[in-house]
Design a protein around this nucleic acid. Structure first.
Length: 315
DNA sequence: CGACTTTGACCCGCGC
DNA sequence: GCGCGGGTCAAAGTCG
């Protein structure tokens, strides 16, 4: 039996922070907890009536809970669909687009120029609908606005292990390796291969100063959930990486070949109450900072409030 | 046989 | 314009 899975702390850390759809069905709202913890003694008829009322109320709440879950799921799906479209637009190097624009292999990687021409309306085609009203922004300013999120992670590994493979739970496809000028160690380039349209790239290179240190640079955000989201090990990892946005650097000690002992240690740290508090605060802040999440939540809640108001007024 | 890795060639931006 | 360096492509090789 996996010690990590069997020894779950009282604090649920299965909250999927970071990019990807939130599996709302697997994270029940507090209503269900109240149902399980409510106690009553059905001795007297009054108690029984009260109990029946309470049960009816709780059943209603459960139904509402289910509806809210469904609404949240719907919003998550819509959000992911929009995000996917956005990524498709920004991902200039997608093969289908290249094929459409230019079939000649010698003219590859001219998509940025093509895009600039499109924005300026010089390609002969109609400029993108979005920019029709106002003067079209330059490609540079457009690119700055949608600059992919860059996350840098520093990991401690075994210096004897020369592989540049980093197990972060996602599926990566290596598409290149290069020796850079400032570092004798080669830099490996990876693309997320879990979803064909996923724009996330990863660069892995050993530190020039310390060969035991691996620097992983993630570019962009996954437009899909974590492929192994059910594995607690990877959830712990995603908790770590979720805190690494906004330019800060995270250090992971992966000195041992097997991840499990490190993850066990990480889980032990998580059990530490101070760590839990900080983690929960960071998770909450990262969620509340996401305008899409708050908007979707506010929408769902306000919708239910209005429904309840109309229910009450009808009674 | 499909998915993945390797690796040389190519493209492109930038500084001179 | 030229050279350099980082990033990407794609054919060939490898692996399960």
């Amino acid at each position: 039996m996996d010690p990590i899975r069997s020894k779950r702390s009282s604090l649920s850390l299965e909250l999927c922070v970071g990019p990807g759809p939130v599996d709302v069905m697997s994270h029940p709202l507090p209503y269900e907890w109240e149902l399980h913890s409510s106690r009553y003694s059905p001795n007297s008829t009054i108690d029984r009536q009260q109990a029946n009322k309470l049960e009816a109320k709780l059943t209603k709440m459960n139904e509402e809970n289910k509806m809210l879950n469904e609404q949240l799921k719907l919003y998550s799906e819509k959000y992911m669909a929009l995000k996917g479209k956005m990524n498709e637009r920004t991902n200039c190097s997608s093969p289908s687009e290249d094929q459409q624009n230019d079939a000649s292999p010698s003219k590859k990687r001219k998509t940025e120029k093509d895009l600039t021409m499109k924005f300026n309306g010089t390609s002969g085609d109609k400029p993108d609908e979005v920019f029709q009203n106002d003067s079209p922004p330059s490609f540079k300013s457009y690119h700055e606005e949608i600059k992919p999120k860059v996350t840098k992670i520093v990991m401690q590994t075994d210096p004897a292990d020369l592989s540049l493979v980093v197990k972060d739970g996602y599926q990566w496809r290596k598409y290149g390796q290069k020796v850079t000028r400032d570092n004798p160690s080669p830099r490996a380039y990876f693309r997320c291969s879990f979803a064909p349209s996923c724009p996330v790239k990863k660069k892995v290179q050993r530190s020039a100063e310390d060969k035991s240190v691996i620097v992983v640079t993630y570019e962009g955000e996954h437009n899909h959930g974590h492929p192994s989201a059910c594995l607690s090990e990877n959830r712990v990892l995603s908790c770590y990486t979720a805190n690494s946005t906004s330019g800060s650097t995270i250090t992971l000690d992966l000195t041992q070949h097997d991840l499990k002992p490190n993850m066990e240690r990480a889980c032990h740290e998580i059990k530490n109450q101070e760590f839990q508090t900080v983690l929960v605060k960071q998770m909450a802040s990262s969620l509340t900072k996401d305008p899409d999440f708050t908007a979707a939540l506010a929408n769902a809640i306000s919708g239910k409030i209005f429904e309840n108001f109309s229910d009450v007024s009808l009674e």
